[in-house]
Write a protein that binds this DNA or RNA. Structure first.
Length: 224
DNA sequence: ACGTGATCATGT
DNA sequence: ACATGATCACGT
């Protein structure tokens, strides 16, 4: 099986998405000779990497949309038996310096979430990774209301960081989007603005969509 | 170290 | 039971 090429259009992308709905991750991995781990204790990103590969997303870790020419970001979304999200959704790293003049409109979060291809995967922990079933993927763009919620959470938390109060941030902040550690381990450090305005070292952080937000997206998509 | 893909697992 | 904080693999 040759490596899938990037889809030439949104229509072609969605044809591929429809074609894999109902398959298990194991079936897909076997078709494309992709490795299939027994568990995700170490290869936590395996579901997303497999789906990226199969759908022809650009590989690597470049800070650009997965389907760059289409401006679409792919997000797998683990769900439980009730169809509710099992995990928060990582969006992007949080800028901790150079925030002068930073705006929601120009933020990486806004750009990443402008157009998302959500791909639900039934991913209860008692189901082996290879037996997890792919759901019906769909395209999403934030509604005016959703955009306003994201904007508010982004502005409130970025303002704290700009004021040198990064150490006061925890996952409890934000109504629909929170900031949590995003690093290999808790000893990793990066530069941030300190309380006195000078640079300090702190743990790298990431923006994550809370499950109430992604659940709302799923509800609006699949409500009968 | 940083940014991509995320899930793990302990504290509450 | 569930969310927060911690962690894992890979490419650069």
């Amino acid at each position: 099986m040759n490596k899938p090429q990037p889809p030439e259009s949104i229509t072609h992308l969605m044809q591929r998405v429809d074609a894999i709905a109902g398959l298990t991750l194991g079936e897909l991995a076997q078709q494309y000779q992709f490795k299939s781990p027994e568990h995700l204790l170490r290869e936590k990103g395996w579901p997303g990497q497999l789906l990226e590969y199969v759908l022809g997303a650009s590989a690597g870790s470049k800070p650009v949309p997965d389907f760059e020419h289409l401006g679409i970001e792919l997000k797998s979304l683990p769900i439980d038996y009730q169809g509710r999200p099992l995990e928060t959704t990582y969006v992007s790293v949080v800028p901790l310096t150079g925030l002068t003049g930073a705006t929601w409109e120009n933020s990486t979060v806004r750009k990443k979430l402008n157009h998302v291809l959500w791909l639900p995967v039934l991913a209860e922990r008692d189901i082996q990774p290879v037996n997890r079933t792919i759901g019906h993927g769909f395209l999403w763009q934030p509604t005016e209301q959703q955009n306003a919620l994201l904007k508010r959470d982004w502005e409130e938390q970025i303002e704290l960081i700009a004021l040198g109060r990064v150490e006061e941030i925890s996952g409890h902040l934000g109504q629909v989007m929170q900031i949590r550690p995003k690093a290999a381990n808790s000893r990793v450090t990066t530069d941030a603005i300190g309380p006195n305005g000078k640079l300090i070292k702190t743990l790298p952080r990431g923006f994550y969509l809370k499950t109430n937000f992604t659940q709302d997206i799923l509800y609006n998509q699949f409500k009968a």
